[in-house]
C-alpha cells in the first residue's frame, strides 16, 4: 500500500517524535485548509471584496486582506498536501508566485508613500508634502529630497486633447554632480526611488511682508488650481500678522489653440494686478506697489507660477514584476503541457 504523501510530509515537518494522532489531526486540518471548495470561496470573496472597494469606496487594504490571507493559507496547504504540485514544476511555480505576490502586496502596503507637493518656479522642493499617505514601515527620508523647478511648458497637440507638460528640473546627486531633466505628466523625476509626476498648476504672487517691528519676510502664496473655467478658486490667506485677506489674480486663463505651446501659464503676457480684499476693502496691487495693513506693509514683488507633483514610492514594484513574469511563464508552460499537448487525443476539429 502506498503511504499517504500528506502523512509523510507532515511527519517530516513534525519529526518522528510526534504522535500518530497529532499527525492525523494536522493532516486533517491541512486537508481542510487545502480544500478546493475553499479556493472557490477565495475566488468569490475576492470578487465581492473588489466590487465593495470599487463601488462602495471601502478601504482596499482592510477589505482585500481577508481573501488574500485565505488564498495564501489555501495555496500553502495545497502545496503541502497535494503531491501533484511537487511533480508539476510549472504548476508549483505558478502557485508559489501567487503566494509571493500576496507577500509583496503586504510589504508594499507597509512601505508605500503617496503624496502631493507644490513647488514655485525657480524654487527648491524642501521635502515637505502638502498631503501624505504612507505605510507604517515608511521612514521620513523623503524630507531630505531636493530638486529645483525651473518652469514648465504646456504643449497642446494639433491632433489630441488636453496638453502635455514639459517641466525642467535640476538636482544634485550625493557626489554633488548637477543633473537636469525634463519630466512631465507621465515621465517622472525619480529621486531615491520616489517618483515625482507633474500634475496641477497655478499662480504664485511673490510678496514681502514688513511687520511694524521685526524683520521683513519673503512669502510665496500659492493660489488654488486653475479651474476648468480658466479662473482660480477664491482664496483666503492669513497674513503673518494674523489678519485675513482674500487674494485673487484677475486673469482668466484661456486655453491656447491646438498645435501651440504655453510657457509658465503664459506669465510673460499677463498684466493682471493682484486683488487684495481686507475688511470689505478692495485693493489693486501692481508689481512693485505696497499696501499698508494693520500690523505691517504688504509689498507685491511679481506674479509667478507653481507646479504640483504627485509623489509615489513603492520599493516592491521590480519584485512584483519579476514574480509576475515567473507566474505568467509558469501558467503558459502549464497550459501548454496539460491542455495543448497532453490532451491532443481529445482534440476536436
Amino acid at each position: 500500500m502506498t503511504p499517504d504523501p500528506a502523512v509523510s510530509i507532515t511527519s517530516q515537518l513534525h519529526g518522528e517524535k510526534s504522535g500518530l494522532g497529532n499527525r492525523r489531526s494536522l493532516v486533517q486540518v491541512l486537508r481542510w485548509l487545502a480544500a478546493p471548495q475553499l479556493t472557490v470561496l477565495v475566488f468569490v470573496l475576492a470578487a465581492v471584496s473588489a466590487l465593495w472597494i470599487s463601488e462602495a469606496g471601502a478601504p482596499p487594504t482592510l477589505v482585500f486582506t481577508p481573501p488574500l490571507l485565505l488564498l495564501t493559507v489555501n495555496l500553502a496547504a495545497a502545496l503541502l498536501i497535494h503531491p501533484r504540485f511537487r511533480t508539476d514544476l510549472p504548476l508549483l511555480l505558478f502557485h508559489i508566485a501567487l503566494i509571493m505576490l500576496v507577500i509583496l502586496f503586504f510589504i508594499a502596503r507597509m512601505t508605500y508613500l503617496e503624496g502631493l507637493a507644490t513647488v514655485t518656479r525657480g524654487a527648491t522642493f524642501n521635502g515637505e508634502l502638502l498631503r501624505v499617505e504612507k505605510g507604517p514601515w515608511h521612514g521620513e527620508g523623503y524630507h531630505n529630497l531636493r530638486f529645483v523647478n525651473e518652469g514648465f511648458i504646456d504643449e497642446y497637440p494639433a491632433n489630441g486633447n488636453g496638453y502635455l507638460t514639459f517641466n525642467t528640473v535640476h538636482w544634485r546627486d550625493v557626489a554633488g554632480n548637477l543633473h537636469r531633466r525634463v519630466i512631465g505628466d507621465d515621465v517622472p523625476l525619480v529621486l531615491k526611488g520616489y517618483r515625482f509626476y507633474a500634475t496641477r498648476r497655478g499662480f504664485t504672487p511673490r510678496l514681502f511682508w514688513q511687520p511694524q517691528s521685526g524683520d521683513m519676510q519673503y512669502i510665496d502664496v500659492k493660489l488654488p488650481d486653475i479651474g476648468p473655467d480658466g479662473w482660480h478658486e477664491g482664496f483666503v490667506w492669513t497674513l503673518p500678522g494674523g489678519q485675513q485677506a482674500q487674494l485673487m489674480v484677475e486673469h482668466k486663463l484661456i486655453e491656447p489653440p491646438p498645435g501651440s505651446r504655453r510657457v509658465d501659464l503664459g506669465l510673460s503676457q499677463i498684466d493682471a494686478p493682484l486683488i487684495v480684499r481686507t475688511n470689505e476693502q478692495r485693493h489693486v496691487l501692481r508689481p512693485g506697489r505696497s499696501l499698508e495693513l494693520a500690523g505691517g506693509t504688504l509689498s507685491y514683488v511679481k506674479l509667478d507660477v507653481w507646479l504640483g507633483y504627485e509623489v509615489v514610492y513603492d520599493p516592491t514594484t521590480p519584485w512584483l514584476i519579476a514574480v509576475t513574469v515567473i507566474g505568467i511563464v509558469s501558467l503558459i508552460v502549464f497550459y501548454l503541457k496539460r491542455v495543448f499537448i497532453q490532451s491532443t487525443q481529445e482534440q476536436v476539429g
Binding site: F43, A46, A47, A50, I53, S54, P60, E114, D186, E310
Partner: peptide, 22 residues
C-alpha cells in the same frame, strides 16, 4: 509607468479583476 500606480481600483480595473477571477 504613466501614473506611478499599477492599481487604482477604478471601476474598469476592478471589473477586469472580477473577470480574471471568474
Amino acid at each position: 509607468d504613466a501614473w506611478g500606480r499599477y492599481w487604482s481600483w477604478d471601476p474598469l480595473e476592478t471589473w477586469s479583476l472580477v473577470t480574471w477571477l471568474a
